[in-house]
């Protein structure tokens, strides 16, 4: 099959290759100018390390000294555990609030207060309560991750499709069936958007927590490196976080297209095939 495409690239392939080439050219030009500026001394190398030096720092951080691993692991653990706890807490409270008018009424003032308070400002208090350890960081990330899933889940429930619920009732569905078969899946796209927002703020929350309260983690490493002007290593640590953030984002993206497959054409086709097999075998 691929033999047929060898004689010549299609117009679209050619365009893609040219674009990739252009991007690479711009990147290389940018790095070269940067390198030249520092080599010639126009830019202060102490503050703006050469790209080649940053690459060397990756080697030293990850392989030669290997100090990054422990910090990376700590930060990852904080992000993931805070994200999981905060999200579960947010969604469960929203389910309670969504189903009970009374619960909603009594929760509302606290939600407004919490919404108006910059969550990260609670950090120093957490520190005082829980000390310089994992607990304080976990609490801060949990707090940062709580809100978006909570609000989105609640909104999803409250904006549930009335006609859909009416239909379920006319079919004699129980309250539980209406909740699990109509309301929850119906709210799922909004819930997922909340979860993605939570993940996006989790890494930031964990780093700020580490800046203010910790003695280990990527935030601490970055802080320490910048404080002693080891700028090339600091850049390497920063880029490591960029890569981490990128992977977390991609994971959430695949999770979303897996869970709310009906919003993604590819996933929908895959699920359709699976369902067809299932029903044919019944």
């Amino acid at each position: 099959m691929s033999d047929e495409s060898i004689p010549g690239l299609s117009a679209e392939d050619g365009l893609t290759w040219r674009r990739v080439f252009n991007h690479l050219a711009i990147l290389v030009a940018f790095l070269t100018v940067w390198e030249m500026l520092t080599v010639t001394g126009i830019a202060d190398e102490l503050l703006y390390p050469r790209p080649t030096l940053i690459i060397y720092s990756f080697y030293s951080l990850f392989i030669d000294q290997g100090i990054v691993w422990r910090h990376l692991w700590i930060t990852m653990a904080t992000v993931l555990s805070g994200f999981v706890v905060g999200t579960i807490l947010g969604i469960s409270l929203a389910v309670v609030a969504g189903l009970s008018e009374t619960a909603r009424r009594y929760m509302k003032p606290y939600i407004i207060v919490l919404e108006a308070t910059p969550r990260i400002a609670i950090g120093p208090l957490m520190l005082a309560w829980l000390g310089f350890g994992f607990e304080a960081k976990l609490a801060i990330v949990t707090l940062v991750c709580f809100f978006a899933p909570f609000i989105n889940t609640l909104t999803g429930f409250l904006s549930a499709d009335e006609d859909q619920i009416e239909l379920m009732r006319s079919l004699g569905a129980s309250k539980w069936q209406i909740l699990t078969k109509a309301m929850v899946p119906d709210a799922m796209p909004l819930i997922m958007a909340g979860i993605r927002l939570a993940m996006a703020s989790a890494l930031g929350g964990a780093l700020v927590a580490e800046f203010i309260s910790s003695n280990e983690g990527m935030g601490v490493l970055l802080n320490n490196l910048a404080a002693v002007l080891q700028m090339s290593a600091a850049f390497a640590a920063l880029l490591t976080l960029t890569v981490l953030g990128f992977f977390l984002y991609r994971i959430m993206e695949s999770l979303e297209s897996w869970i709310i497959f009906w919003h993604h054409d590819d996933s929908m086709r895959r699920v359709a095939r699976k369902r067809q097999t299932y029903w044919s075998k019944l």
Binding site: E166, L167, S170, L171, A173, P185, W262, A272, R275, W279
Partner: peptide, 27 residues
């Protein structure tokens, strides 16, 4: 007694077959 609405009120996450089977699945 069965009812049908102006809007299709199909569930977006179910195939046509699964939507049609919903009344059965509920009982």
């Amino acid at each position: 007694v069965g009812m049908m609405f102006q809007r299709p009120t199909l569930m977006a996450w179910r195939t046509v077959l699964e939507n049609v089977l919903l009344p059965t699945e509920l009982v």
